[in-house]
């Protein structure tokens, strides 16, 4: 199966720093799992490094060297950080995700169909969740007014656009409806970042959409 990589223009937005927080989290998780995408970001970061190195340093300016030297006494050099062990019960969560899962948080059953852990991301332009689907089960059919970024963390799922395995990245272009179904095997766990608002399109939409918009479900 060929990998689903994040689009390169999104990786450029990530490397340049222009991508906002919640989608950056999706990209960071993807990079932690997929070496090929990581190499593209390393290349882009190197381009940033080259542009920095080439920056003309003709400013007749010491940029506050004295102040910086004076600050060194109160700033310790830190020992190298060690990769943190994965949390029990959350072994599928790569490092960038770990700090977003609050201690004590657990799966919550939504609409009797899937489990969710809501993640807190700054701002209200995006909704970030971890979603767990039993094999053969699907998410409620829905459409978005904006972008949706999905990274598969365990198991796999299939929708009209293809099959996705661990590390794979999907970016939904908005208006189209889709209905992802979990593949056979272990339950599918995915990080889903959705630009708000989200609109359900299934049979119960009239009752459910007001709850979605009020963040009740």
């Amino acid at each position: 199966m060929s990998r689903h990589l994040a689009p390169e223009e999104l990786l450029l937005d990530y490397s340049s720093g222009a991508l906002s927080h919640a989608p950056s989290l999706a990209v960071a998780v993807h990079l932690a799992l997929v070496p090929e995408a990581r190499r593209t970001v390393e290349l882009l970061d190197a381009v940033g490094g080259a542009l920095l190195e080439n920056e003309c340093a003709a400013l007749p300016d010491d940029c506050g060297l004295e102040r910086a030297m004076a600050r060194l006494d109160s700033v310790a050099c830190e020992p190298p950080a060690l990769p943190s062990a994965r949390r029990p019960g959350f072994e599928w969560a790569p490092t960038p995700l770990a700090s977003y899962i609050r201690p004590g948080s657990g799966w919550r059953r939504i609409l009797g169909k899937f489990d969710e852990i809501r993640l807190e991301v700054p701002g209200d332009a995006y909704r970030a969740s971890l979603v767990r689907l039993e094999p053969g089960h699907s998410l409620p059919e829905h459409k978005h007014s904006g972008y949706e970024y999905t990274v598969c963390l365990q198991g796999g799922y299939t929708d009209a656009t293809g099959s996705y395995g661990v590390g794979d990245f999907a970016v939904g272009p908005g208006a189209e409806r889709h209905e992802p179904i979990a593949d056979p095997g272990e339950p599918c766990i995915a990080l889903i970042i959705v630009e708000t608002p989200i609109v359900l399109t299934g049979p119960w939409r009239r009752w459910l959409n007001p709850l979605v918009s009020r963040h009740i479900i």
């Binding site: 720093g17 950056s24 989290l25 960071a28 970061d45 190197a46 940033g48 920095l52 960038p96 700054p122």
Partner: peptide
Amino acid sequence: ASAATWIFTIARNKRIDLLRRAARPV
């Protein structure tokens, strides 16, 4: 990574921190 690349990534994040008053996941 080269020193320039490493320092670029640090400066990029500081720019987000200080000028955009936002944070970055990593």
